[in-house]
């Protein structure tokens, strides 16, 4: 087994555990924002998309990469912004009370 694969799997397993530990006990009020916020973070695929698009490969690679960049950017920008918009609504009420 190549070394990077083993290292990657180690990171994967530990991060899954970290995720479970960090995220449990989310109040229902925050389920939707958590989901859209997590959604934005899954836009991390943009890193892969940037690497694929920018290395000046064949046309097909660049085309696929470009679509991936668009998709991932929508996810990142839209995800963080809409989450902020939602959480801002929650905030307003807290101060009004």
């Amino acid at each position: 087994m190549p070394e990077y694969l083993l290292v990657g799997l180690t990171i994967f397993v530990l991060s899954m555990f970290a995720g479970f530990e960090v995220i449990t006990k989310v109040p229902p009020t925050l389920h939707t924002p958590l989901m859209s916020g997590a959604n934005a973070i899954s836009g991390i695929a943009i890193i892969g998309a940037l690497l694929v698009t920018g290395r000046n490969g064949m046309h097909l690679e660049v085309i696929l990469g470009l679509i991936a960049v668009v998709f991932a950017t929508i996810n990142v920008v839209g995800g963080f912004m809409v989450t902020d918009r939602m959480l801002n609504m929650f905030k307003k009420k807290a101060s009004k009370n």
Binding site: S15, M16, G19, A38, I41, A45
Partner: peptide
């Protein structure tokens, strides 16, 4: 890392 965090969430 980021992917597994979202995966577990």
């Amino acid at each position: 890392i980021a992917g597994s965090l979202v995966g577990s969430a």
